[in-house]
Design a protein around this nucleic acid. Structure first.
Lengths: 199, 199, 199, 199
DNA sequence: GATGAATGAGCTTTCATTCAT
DNA sequence: AATGAATGAAAGCTCATTCAT
């Protein structure tokens, strides 16, 4: 591993740790010393990798959005039915919420809420483009194939993003009476019914 | 107006002002001196009404949830069809987001994100019971009347809460191509389609 | 002493202490904790009186310039000869350098050198107007009375300010072979010779 | 170019770059990484040439003082009149302030103000001896030739150093109504009048 | 000799809360 | 009940210097 690979590796490990702490404790309650301590590095060293706390948060949302987008891209590349694709996307989302909850939580607890942090370089959702683009492709494909109704993209996107995010929030609050994965069928069905071409 | 009425009145005016500031600038970016200054009272005086900033935030979410719940209660008391009721609830929500955005924003920007603030006295969504209860009544009524499918309440609640919240977030980001009120029909239809009994 | 008098009094005591420390140790080497400690107040308390370190520095230069200007105003109000007035101004300056060296040092070590600190609110020497104005009056009066040559004001002002400042700097360096007050006659004479109408 | 010549060359280039940055942005606002970056060397490499930032600053003042002294030495070696020599010295100073402002600015903005930096190895102006010595020679020569009054050297030196420095400061502040070179005649005359043997 | 990541003490500034008046 | 000055811990960030490579 050469120098710049090492540096890239460390950068990623900082992002991963910060992602966890931000998701768990919130952006403002997580301090740079907290992050540094968990990584066993100095505060000064942190600033060799990220020029500010806000910039770090922006990099994380891009990274996370990209990671989530990539998983959805795989679904988009299959020629499954709309109903199938929805089921797969919901499954991806909830599986992630179960296995890597920090990623989904980051959307909800950091990105969604601390708008001032993302106002500088993430205007108009450019930092979550990775994720949005794939949902857009999914939707356009299914409209074109005649499976989903043609409507304003944001009506559909808000449904996906809001619904799934809302469920994960409820899970986080501990109010769901059953495991979130057991909701996959219900929710996929609801989404499909909401968007499908009506007879 | 007697003494304790006066006090209650002042308490409410503090909550109203704090609600606006918290919604606009975020919980952590709003200071007690900010709130006191806008009210032309002293910080010391503030602490005669609320014992802490966190406690204030909790009182506000209860208040806001109650206010929103009351509006939905009115809908619940009519004997409109499920489809109608959904349309009315969506309209209430979006109208509020347009005219009194601080209430909806408070849900999204303060309650949703600063979980540590609400961990002490609002476990399990007890502070938003006012709102949830009415959605629950709406849902149960429509299931009983045979209009909506009988499914886990949270599958339905997550759809409502998440979808509407998501749309307001998108509006806040300035990415919606048209006025949010023009989405009412689409979204009401999507929700109804999602939840209705399928033929 | 009422509330706001008390506050004004404390403000001045902070300025006085900061003036001493800035003069003695330089602007950047003097920290807010240093100032607070010397005053037996908390750091937070300091910020109830001055919104920033830079702003404090600006207030001090205005105050100091005003104080020096006031002394020169007294000279301007007499109808002494130009030669006499010069002697008096030099005496004022050196006496101050002896008795309240921090004021003169502040000009040299803080105002003169840390331009970025004074770039915001002190453009074009407005923060030292109190001092400059009086030198200007002195000069104009003596030109009008026919005692001093009529020349660009800044040629004369640079001589005064630079010469006196330079001498105080040399004193501070400890290189002057004799007490600075013993230079008053020489220097007054030099200035007078430099500026007087030549036969 | 052998090894030690190479090293000397690099040392000088570091000094030149640091001189520019210190003059422009101040001693404390200029960091070692700033200097290294502008030179396209590493910070580690910098420390192979200068053991500390303070030491670098001291070396620069010696170098600058020497360079300025050398120019004055040329004047001293002519047998021009006192009046002429003064005019030449003033011209040298102001020309430099116009063409290589970093040298003069360094005197004013770095040497004059950050005394703690120069307290260790530059006591008693030993680091500016190169410049002072030449002014001293100029003055002694002119006294000996009967052109200038015999007075305490520092009375004369303070005049030169302070006056010229003061004018450059005023120029830097942008308050001079005309180009600094247009002040040469006025100022030379003032200095000559101040110091000459009086009839 | 050259590199540049790592260090960590130290900086300026903030703010929820207290309490003497 | 009202005031607002005082507190001080803690935040984000900086930077001269070191040292393993």
């Amino acid at each position: 591993m050469n120098m710049s690979e090492k540096k890239a590796f460390k950068r990623e490990s900082i992002m991963q740790t910060a992602l966890e702490l931000f998701s768990l404790n919130g952006f403002h309650k997580t301090t740079i010393p907290d992050i540094a301590k968990k990584l066993h590095i100095s505060v000064g060293s942190f600033y060799n990798y990220f020029t500010s706390k806000d910039f770090l948060a922006q990099e994380i949302i891009k990274y996370t959005s990209e990671a989530l987008g990539e998983k959805i891209r795989v679904v988009n590349m299959t020629d499954a039915s709309a109903q199938d694709k929805i089921q797969q996307i919901v499954t991806i989302y909830f599986t992630m919420a179960e296995e890597k909850p920090e990623m989904i939580d980051y959307f909800l607890r950091v990105y969604l809420s601390n708008r001032e942090v993302f106002s500088e370089n993430c205007e108009g959702m450019v930092c979550v483009a990775g994720f949005i683009t794939e949902i857009m492709i999914f939707f356009d494909d299914c409209v074109e194939s005649g499976e989903l109704r043609n409507q304003d993209f944001f009506s559909a996107f808000g449904l996906f993003m809001g619904y799934l995010g809302g469920m994960v929030f409820l899970k986080g609050e501990g109010v769901l009476p059953k495991d979130i994965e057991l909701y996959i069928d219900d929710i996929s069905r609801n989404i499909y019914c909401a968007l499908k071409v009506q007879e």
